[in-house]
Design a protein around this nucleic acid. Structure first.
Lengths: 336, 336
DNA sequence: ATTAGTGACTAATGCGGTTTAGCTACTTGA
DNA sequence: TCAAGTAGCTAAACCGCATTAGTCACTAAT
């Protein structure tokens, strides 16, 4: 900036005013300064900016997963891709970190905030008993929770979520209409907010219809557990006629496990995947799946965060309910 | 730091010396200062540090992919996870960005470096005619190229790579021993360095053995193209008896396509996947695959970068050649 | 004709660290 | 006994920017 000032024949402050659109310089000077800055290929040092109170121009994203669990999961990369799209427009950086567990995640937030590394964070995988909202409140760190239910106890946090309950209800509706009365929901990690929401909704729907053969089983999202649980329930005394899997990986593994037990899909058992991806079209029959726009989900979350950083109020935004794409894996229930 | 200085009854400079292990303070004072800092929960502001010449304590990672191509790909998350492990030890942040293409990627490097946002970068998906090494050289931005071949024209860049050529040779060896003479390699994106290395090696191996029915076909890595190419080559006049796919997604899609054409795996056609993941165990038969430790790959790359940042020399490091895990998808060639 | 006001700009200060130059009291060697 | 070192510390400058408090010339109002 000193150089620019010299070349343009003005003071450094004038340069700052000119470049930041502040009043205090004539349009003439402003243009001249802009041009010199351009010629010199000047870019503001984020460090200096941050130091003089402008914030770090960076948002944080922590993924709490053991390294070996980071398997075939298209959701996060797509989410991040959507996030980036919005952040890039505003030249905001994304500081990304993978950690082992929630405790480490909290430590990262503390550190980032203390070091002035980020202006805000995006929080994923909210849980039922989650220490993070309290921490973020305490720190005063602007944050958007992705996938959590509205939480009136933390008015400072924005939330972006999909109505799993509605989606679950519509899936159960559809299966019920096809004659399914015994349904097993192979759920994800217990304790995750959306897992619990889906489980609760399924139970409520079953009670409403007086169905007794409907239940949820939690897993770790892995193909191994998906297959194992599938085998177990299909070999039980009163096997289900429909299976709802909380992700695509388990759905595909489960469908394969069913095939090994000589249960044909969908004649013997219907399969629904709660996540759509190329995977669902790699098995025969193609899997019916709940499809959502993960990239748009990321965009929405990022937009909420930037709004928060601009001093806007915390909001709760609902993204569209995932839609069931009917493929070959769902059909009428076989008579008992 | 001012507070610490006051509480410890010394000057701010003394605090800086004490906390950074510099000489100039007694061990007594040093301990006292450390303790006060601890009590006050002090963390250095990275912005201030960066401003006084210490660097940004951050490394950059750009992924140049159209948003919709970010599909089922376990490699990158695992790689990043390994990178993080090493960076976290040194409290280095990872600035992550997804862009559309290489041109954008170059722009990001320029911006990051001009803004002093990163101290170095990790570069993935090197190409045969790649503008990035030149740019990084020009900028003087420390960088590690992941997956590139050694490049003596850019002595400033470190390289971490696996010897695809060796792996390809051993795969061909194995297939040849099983009697395969007509082999098609369903390769990835043309122009990627490792794609070209594999294609070249395959051609060389074929020539060495005088095989004429051996060739490579490039694709975009998608399940759709994997399936389409598979159908095309299997229905051609002189169909191959073995298929080598450059990733797991295409291998699975290809195997499914083969099944639809009533070619059984491995009786009619053997399938090898150049990437191992849960996917390969989701189809019947399980796919034989080249397995590598992507997490360790990431760790190695990150270690090279930190070494570079410490002022070490640029090096070329070779990680272990991927190993072929024989599963059910490879077998003896059927007689012509 | 004086005063008040305003537009365009400059000088100076601070952000939170690191670093260099000095300064003082104490040790050491001849 | 005195000069020369040295350990331990402080004061001050600096990094690159934003911002506040002037400064100055020129116009409008009384």
């Amino acid at each position: 900036m000193k150089d620019i000032a010299r070349h343009a024949g003005v003071s450094q402050s004038a340069v700052s005013f000119a470049l930041n659109g502040r009043p205090g310089v004539s349009e003439d000077t402003r243009d001249r300064v802009r041009q010199v800055a351009e010629e010199l290929g000047w870019r503001p040092s984020t460090a200096a900016r941050a130091l003089s109170g402008e914030g770090a121009a960076t948002v944080g994203f922590v993924l709490a997963r053991p390294a070996d669990t980071l398997g075939v999961d298209s959701f996060f990369l797509q989410l991040v891709s959507g996030i980036q799209e919005v952040l890039a427009e505003r030249h905001l950086g994304l500081l990304f970190q993978v950690v082992e567990d929630i405790a480490d995640e909290c430590a990262v937030y503390r550190r980032w905030w203390a070091e002035h590394r980020v202006d805000g964070v995006l929080v994923v995988d909210p849980r039922t008993a989650d220490p993070r909202p309290d921490l973020l409140d305490e720190l005063g760190l602007p944050a958007v929770v992705i996938g959590g239910a509205p939480d009136e106890r933390h008015p400072g946090l924005s939330t972006v979520w999909a109505d799993d309950a509605g989606a679950m209800a519509s899936v159960v509706d559809g299966l019920y209409a096809l004659g399914h009365r015994r349904i097993v929901h192979i759920a994800g990690l217990p304790g995750l907010a959306h897992t619990e929401r889906r489980i609760r909704t399924l139970r409520a729907e079953a009670e409403r219809r007086g169905l007794t053969g409907v239940r949820s089983v939690t897993t770790d999202y892995s193909d191994a557990e998906g297959a194992a649980v599938t085998r177990r329930v299909l070999e039980s005394a009163d096997p289900p006629t429909a299976l709802i899997y909380d992700n695509d990986v388990m759905a595909v593994a489960g469908a394969a496990a069913a095939a090994e037990l000589d249960r044909s899909v969908p004649a013997d058992v219907s399969v629904v995947s709660w996540e759509d991806s190329a995977l669902c079209r790699m098995v025969k029959p193609w899997l019916s799946a709940l499809s959502r726009d993960s990239v748009e989900f990321g965009r929405t979350a990022a937009r909420e965060l930037t709004a928060l950083l601009d001093g806007g109020p915390a909001r709760t935004v609902r993204v569209p309910v995932p839609q069931l794409i009917e493929r070959g894996s769902t059909g009428a229930a076989r008579e008992a």
